[in-house]
Structure formats: C-alpha cells, structure tokens
C-alpha cells in the first residue's frame, strides 16, 4: 500500500518526470503528501525517498531544513502571522498573541509566527493555509478564521495546494 492515494500516485509520478534528476522532486513530493495528510510521517519519508532513489535519511535531511513541513499533525487550518519589521510596527504581535490565546485549545487551528510574508504594503497580514489575508485587525483575523471553520471559506491544503484537488504541483 502506498502512502499516497491512487490519484496522488499519478501526481507523484508526473512530478518526478518533470526533472532530469528524480531527487529534485523531493520538495514537491513532500508538499503533495502534506496536502493529502496534513503532515509528514516517517512512512511518507521512507516511501518518498524510495520514489526518488535516495535513503530515508537523505530525504529527511532535506525536508527538515524547510519550515513549511510539519512533522506532527497540525490543525486543519494553519494560521501564519507575519511579524516582520513593517508588520511589527503595525501591531502584528498583538494579533499573533490574540490569535494564539483565542485558539490555544482549538484542535482545528494552529497559529504560528512567520518571517516576511511578502505583503508588507498591507499590514498586518497572515496566511491561512497559504491564502493571503491582509490589512488585519485582531477582530477581522478571528472572523476570517471562523469563516474557514464554518465552511464559508474554502481552504487550500496544509501545504498550500489547491482546494479543489487537495494537492498542489500536479
């Protein structure tokens, strides 16, 4: 049994075929499995390593360098609040701490602090599963998260893949 769904096995093969060397597909494959499962398990690392022809240690060595990959399950909604310089002077830490307090006990929502989101003209800002939300107040940020929870907004995958496919890059 593959860790990938049958549709994602096809996607994985297509991803690998894009590159002259299969190991180049490591990052896209980790995005694919994270969109599917919400995180990256040991079993996924082993299978992805086999797909590209490297050891599990090599694959994990690459993966662990990058902050977007989650080695434990997170909430269905990953809220990434930018606190970089311009955001900071516009109250980003108040929003980060407000969201952290509001969702501390909520298993659906994981709040994290991130470095520059490249949206510094519309601060404070956050991404929810890598979808941008800008010019926030704490109240509007909470409202947006609640809209995702209620299904009024459709979220991308945990790795930012398209909502309709549940997976990016393929």
């Amino acid at each position: 049994m593959s860790v990938f769904t049958p549709r994602n096995v096809e996607r994985a093969q297509a991803l690998i075929a894009q590159y002259p060397e299969p190991k180049s597909a490591l990052l896209p494959l980790f995005h694919l499995i994270q969109d599917q499962d919400g995180w990256v398990s040991d079993e996924s690392i082993a299978e992805i390593a086999a797909l590209v022809g490297c050891t599990a240690a090599e694959a994990q060595g690459t993966m662990s360098f990058y902050t977007m990959y989650k080695r434990q399950p997170v909430g269905r909604f990953l809220v990434s609040v930018c606190t970089c310089p311009v955001s900071m002077v516009h109250g980003a830490y108040e929003i980060l701490h407000g969201l952290e307090a509001r969702y501390a006990e909520d298993p659906d929502v994981t709040v994290e602090e991130v470095e520059c989101n490249a949206a510094c003209d519309k601060v404070p800002n956050m991404q929810v599963n890598y979808e941008y939300h800008e010019n926030l107040t704490l109240a509007s940020a909470i409202q947006i998260v609640e809209e995702y929870k209620s299904g009024a907004r459709v979220a991308r995958g945990i790795s930012g893949g398209r909502a309709e496919s549940g997976a990016s890059n393929a």
Binding site: S24, L26, L27, F30, H31, M68, V114, G160, S168
Partner: peptide, 21 residues
C-alpha cells in the same frame, strides 16, 4: 517549482541546491 520556507534559497547557489532536492 515551489520551495518550502527558507529565505537563504534566494541566494542563487542555495537555490540550485534546493532545486536539486
């Protein structure tokens, strides 16, 4: 090709390393 959260990959040789997996 999407990276996965690493500022240093904007440096061209780091970017190449990352693109090689």
């Amino acid at each position: 090709h999407r990276g996965a959260g690493a500022y240093i990959c904007g440096e061209e040789t780091a970017l190449i390393e990352s693109l090689e997996g």
